[in-house]
Design a protein around this nucleic acid. Structure first.
Lengths: 286, 286
DNA sequence: GCTTTTTTTGTACTGAGGGTATAATATATG
DNA sequence: CATATATTATACCCTCAGTACAAAAAAAGC
């Protein structure tokens, strides 16, 4: 992406955080990023399109960081989950994501709404899958309910805890408290057998998100990590890290839209590792 | 209130429900309620002011109905609480209140935000006080946490249950499910002693809302009800019911802004009941 | 019934804000 | 140096909230 364009995204994001989306006029963005209106509409077809670009930008970085926390750890370890949720809270707070999401939901822009809706469901689904790691198959019928109630409790607790403690707000404490409640709730619904929503409904809600199953995801991440560890410190280290990260990212996308670019990256990586060692990585391509 | 003005409020509310607040232009409201712009701005100083009028209108009716459900019942009976929550959900859905609230929170209007914020806190406080009735003093340190988590769980469950079941959505089922979770959570925090937020903080959040304490509220409601029951069916029945309702409503307001009107109403009521029987009711005036 | 006051209406206006069009200018590329 | 692309400045259109004000209609007072 263009440096200039990225600069506009950053400036606009900052303005949106400070003043809100609607309260920030295009003129504000023009002034603060020192570009002309013509250039702006050359980069983005509308103010909404700019907002989506910002969302995509943040989301990408965040999901990457979140998955890094899982690498090499036991997925069933609830401490890892807590760390991931703390990261999420901090990212959201730093980027003011939640308020922006909520603001946008009332903007009468169908496309934008669908976009946000998808992100929300994706987040819910991620929590669901993590709960699956943690609580196991025996709790499966209650995992969606658990995911919904956990995110609910966490969000509200965060909101009010912040209102109460202002500057001394402690996300860690709230996350821990909320996770403790989750554990109790899961025990309870498991023993009483009360189910509100069947987990299968998630499939309906994630349109065409035939996301790779958890196993695939984890195995790939581990494979990439192990390859990274083999890299010795030399002048090309950065290059190979970049290549590996790119391959991982592309393969984790649900749509395999740039197969040839991936192939070229693999070819470049092969120069370092040799054909044999790359065999396993290649097997991840469908 | 003026009939015409009330008509504008109703029409506007309907339009806001259908199209959303921002998407409804003043011109729309003018067209649908057949008034001129001049008249509109004679009634309301701005579009936001109109929205607040709508909120006040709904809120008043709703709180009245909600309190009626409590009259003559045991406040500690959780079934009564469930009924009240079901009423709330249905009112909110029928009036599209929640979406309107949320939309407004991102309108960069300080006054409007404060207004909504107060309503939310008031609702939270009401739940807190009801939980106090139900779970008693021994749970007091955890009642605010409970109120926060219960409203969180309920809202999220409602949202997703509706997404799943569309037309077959059953608020009763969701309320019951959520109340069951609440009971478990209260047991849990009581036994582990984990507290997130101290209930005292509520005082800070309800600015100048030196609401009459629960006892006052209940006693007054009971007194009014018992007087109503004494009314025999005669031509003046309606008149006295109206008078009693008015007195109750006025006295439940935190600010006693129309003492003389209340006094005149009491005088009128006295004609039916006589000075003695009205003694108790009069004692409710500070 | 007539006068005065209040309410309502119609019309025209202001200003902010999103978005378009385009000719002129600057910058990069070959 | 020439050509293609990116950028700028300026002027413009449209929608919408809110204002101003004189004319007309309706209420209220007597």
């Amino acid at each position: 992406m263009n440096d200039r364009k990225q600069h506009v995204i950053n400036t606009a994001h900052q303005l949106f955080v400070e003043k809100g989306f609607q309260a920030t006029s295009i003129q504000d963005i023009l002034d603060y990023s020192s570009i002309s209106k013509g250039t702006f509409y050359n980069y983005f077809s509308s103010k909404n399109e700019l907002l989506m670009a910002i969302f995509r930008d943040i989301q990408k970085k965040f999901e990457h960081e979140r998955n890094e926390l899982l690498v090499g750890k036991d997925p069933a370890d609830i401490e890892v989950f807590i760390n991931q949720m703390v990261l999420q809270v901090k990212t959201h707070r730093a980027t003011n994501l939640i308020p922006l999401y909520e603001e946008v939901l009332f903007l009468n822009d169908v496309e934008l709404k669908k976009f946000i809706g998808n992100i929300q469901i994706r987040l819910l689904r991620w929590v669901y899958e993590r709960l699956n790691d943690i609580f196991g198959e025996s709790n499966k019928p209650y995992l969606l309910d658990g995911a919904i109630m956990f995110t609910a409790i966490l969000h509200h607790n965060l909101k009010y805890e912040r209102m109460a403690n202002r500057l001394n707000s402690s996300p860690e404490r709230v996350v821990r408290y909320s996770v403790n409640r989750l554990v109790i709730l899961m025990n309870d619904v498991n023993s009483t057998g009360e189910q509100l929503l069947p987990p299968e409904i998630l499939e309906e809600w994630s349109p065409s998100c035939h996301k790779k199953d958890k196993t695939y995801h984890e195995k790939l991440t581990l494979e990439i990590m192990s390859l990274k560890k083999e890299l010795v410190k030399d002048k090309d280290l950065e290059k190979y890290v970049e290549l590996l990260d790119f391959v991982q990212e592309e393969l984790l996308q649900s749509d395999n839209k740039r197969p040839f670019v991936v192939e070229s990256a693999l070819a470049a990586i092969e120069i370092y590792f040799g054909k044999d060692k790359l065999q396993r990585l290649r097997s991840f391509i469908q």
